[in-house]
């Protein structure tokens, strides 16, 4: 296996910040279904989730974009997804301005709205609450779940159920080795809407970076036998 180096993806702020409570200690659940995971595996999972959450954010800086795309290619390679890795490589080679190109696609896919079948707002409530509004009941429940695990949104202006925040939260759970909560969150909140979101995105975009991102998210979050 090729070593994959993930450049430190430093977030200027911690978007999902800790609730300070020195009285309590984090401890891995002994009843976790993933309790066989070693610290190294857990740490890798943290990195995976963090990379994926960053990929689902609006691309702000060129340097980070370059690093993320490189990490994405190497990760795909490590998974032996050669075609997907090659698609991204090709795009990277031919595209004169990576940041601008990704921003355009991100805006089109996730920020503005378009006809119903190409609208893919990246918020769980749009898919799980029939009214398809933001800040729905699902948002409230997801936010409560973050809190119940000791996390709060820090100075965040997006609804709590934005996919990047959900992935960021999953990274935090992995860091805590709280795999029971991770599985519960995935089962109750993440998978039910991601499966719909992923399909719509595939119909809506041919961009190799976002297609690969979705497959990666799927790989790391889907239910395993």
């Amino acid at each position: 296996m090729l070593p994959v180096s993930l450049v430190s993806l430093s977030c200027p702020r911690s978007y999902i910040a800790a609730v300070q409570n020195p009285m309590l200690q984090a401890s891995p659940s002994t009843e976790s279904c993933q309790s066989h995971q070693t610290p190294e595996e857990a740490s890798r999972l943290v990195d995976m989730y963090t990379l994926l959450s960053q990929l689902m954010r609006y691309p702000e800086e060129s340097a980070i974009v370059t690093a993320m795309v490189e990490a994405q290619i190497e990760l795909a390679g490590a998974l032996d997804w050669q075609r997907e890795a090659e698609d991204v490589r090709q795009w990277r080679q031919q595209c004169p301005d990576l940041l601008h190109d990704l921003r355009l696609e991100y805006t089109r896919l996730f920020i503005t709205a378009a006809r119903r079948n190409t609208t893919v707002p990246p918020y769980a409530s749009v898919y799980l609450d029939s009214d398809a509004l933001l800040q729905g009941r699902t948002t409230e429940r997801i936010h409560d779940f973050y809190r119940s695990c000791g996390y709060e949104l820090a100075a965040e202006s997006e609804p709590a159920d934005h996919i990047w925040l959900q992935l960021n939260f999953l990274a935090a759970l992995a860091r805590d080795a709280n795999f029971e909560a991770e599985e519960q969150f995935l089962r109750t909140f993440f998978r039910p809407w991601f499966v719909i979101f992923k399909e719509k995105c595939f119909q809506a975009t041919a961009h190799p970076v976002y297609r690969l991102t979705l497959i990666l998210i799927d790989f790391f979050t889907k239910e395993e036998q």
Binding site: S14, A18, Q25, D47, A171, R175, N178
Partner: peptide, 9 residues
């Protein structure tokens, strides 16, 4: 990745 260490409730 720097994530603040959390204390689980």
């Amino acid at each position: 990745v720097p994530l603040s260490r959390v204390a689980a409730k």
